[in-house]
């Protein structure tokens, strides 16, 4: 009985603390999300909203070639960006952690400096580098290497991938660095002591133990890139547009909020699915460890 009261009192104290942030999240995150679900089953009839339950929006999302292409492209771009960013980030994080010595903080600082200005500007600057009379084209033509400006480098998916891989670089480096730092160096020594070559010591000890950081980096990069609005709008042209741009169009110009809501929900489901896969992987690597 005393135990029961003790638990109840603890529960009450916990609730009293977490009540406010929970209420905030419930009212301003969960409720809007549920309303968005509701809206996605309604239809827009010019200026009026028809509140009859229908799957028409979802039918359109999955059958209309434009929507489906955008979703596929967003997924593809996000996966490529994630892969490229994490693959490039790992050696850098490894270098700082294992060879950084006393300059680790300085090196990390050096990595983050380019990111202390507006996200919009960082993306926009790529437009200046890649544009028709941008840095690359004017540089190459002044060297007489090209006659006409290269056009394949801007306003397509490649430019989006490049700009996003740049924008999210430190967010991939930092978690990987942290997980590498956490590796007890005596584990690597134990491996060497038991006859490991440098190769084996990397693939059998370092890499598996860095997995939580790699998975975190993957999620940190993947989730925002699949829903990115700014980058495709600035450097993607028409063939580099992504689903977020279409969602915005539906809510603004097209004035079809229900369709926009269902597009957003379909994207959300894809994100959730992939996040769950990675969280499951993470649990496999991390969950068992204390």
């Amino acid at each position: 009985m005393a135990d029961f009261w003790e638990k109840t009192r603890d529960s009450f104290a916990g609730w009293r603390l977490i009540g406010l942030p929970f209420g905030f999240g419930f009212l301003l995150l969960l409720t809007p999300l549920l309303l968005m679900v509701l809206l996605s089953f309604w239809t827009q009839d010019y200026l009026d909203l028809r509140r009859d339950f229908t799957l028409a929006n979802y039918r359109e999302v999955f059958t209309h070639p434009v929507f489906f292409t955008l979703i596929k492209r967003s997924l593809a771009i996000a996966l490529v960006v994630t892969l490229v960013t994490v693959l490039l980030a790992f050696p850098v994080a490894y270098f700082i952690s294992f060879y950084g010595g006393k300059r680790k903080t300085l090196l990390l600082f050096l990595i983050t400096i380019p990111f202390w200005t507006s996200y919009l500007l960082r993306i926009f600057l790529w437009k200046i580098i890649l544009g028709y009379n941008g840095v690359i084209n004017s540089g190459l033509s002044s060297l007489n290497l090209i006659d006409a400006p290269l056009s394949f480098i801007l306003y397509n998916s490649n430019a989006v991938v490049l700009a996003l891989s740049h924008a999210w670089a430190p967010f991939a480096i930092l978690p990987i660095f942290v997980s590498l730092e956490k590796i007890d160096r005596s584990l690597l020594e134990a491996g060497r002591d038991l006859g490991d070559s440098a190769y084996r010591s990397f693939f059998f000890i370092t890499l598996p133990l860095a997995m939580p950081g790699i998975i975190a980096a993957t999620l940190i990069v993947f989730i925002p890139t699949i829903g990115d609005y700014v980058t495709p709008k600035l450097v993607g042209g028409t063939e580099g547009l992504m689903v977020a741009n279409m969602i915005q169009v539906q809510f603004a110009k097209a004035n079809n909020a229900p369709l926009g809501a269902s597009l957003a929900l379909v994207s959300l489901c894809i994100v959730m699915l992939i996040a769950l896969i990675f969280l499951f992987l993470n649990r496999k690597y991390l969950g068992r460890r204390v």
């Binding site: 977490i18 942030p21 929970f22 999240g25 301003l28 995150l29 809007p32 999300l33 309303l35 968005m36 809206l39 999620l219 989730i223 925002p224 699949i226 829903g227 990115d228 609005y229 977020a244 969602i247 915005q248 809510f251 909020a257 926009g260 809501a261 957003a264 994207s267 959300l268 994100v271 959730m272 996040a275």
Partner: peptide, 18 residues
């Protein structure tokens, strides 16, 4: 409370706008 970490920002913006 932690869910926004796993939501693209546009989803949060859109749902609140609705």
């Amino acid at each position: 409370i932690m869910a926004p970490l796993f939501l693209p920002e546009i989803i949060i913006g859109v749902s609140m706008l609705i």
